[in-house]
């Protein structure tokens, strides 16, 4: 899936962050899950059980599908605001 899913362009400042080493941008204050989803980075990890791709599902801190690693700690991307310089790794 290509392109940006954000509606309109009236957004605040842009910040940059890294996801598995790749430099990406987000709008300041946006959650990590929304920022990644909006620019087509929908796969956040691979399932340990079926090796299939998994991504954010509930966007409200319930399902735990969007868990990523920040500073070695498991964190829900949907509850993490993006800030400049944030370094995010997918969970393996």
């Amino acid at each position: 899936m290509a392109g940006d899913l954000r509606i309109g362009s009236a957004w605040a400042r842009t910040v940059s962050f890294r996801f598995d080493g790749e430099l990406l941008t987000a709008r300041e204050g946006e959650t990590l899950a929304a920022a990644l989803y909006a620019q087509g980075r929908r796969t956040l990890r691979m399932s340990r059980d079926d090796s299939g791709p998994r991504g954010a599902f509930c966007f409200m801190g319930v399902c735990q599908e969007c868990v990523v690693s920040i500073d070695g700690r498991l964190t829900e991307a949907c509850r993490t605001p993006v800030h400049n310089g944030l370094v995010v790794e997918s969970v393996r």
Partner: peptide
């Protein structure tokens, strides 16, 4: 990825404009 909850969709649309 790309299958999301209906309630999750309202969060994306309302809170994030996505």
């Amino acid at each position: 990825p790309g299958v999301i909850g209906l309630a999750g969709a309202t969060v994306l649309l309302k809170a994030h404009g996505v």
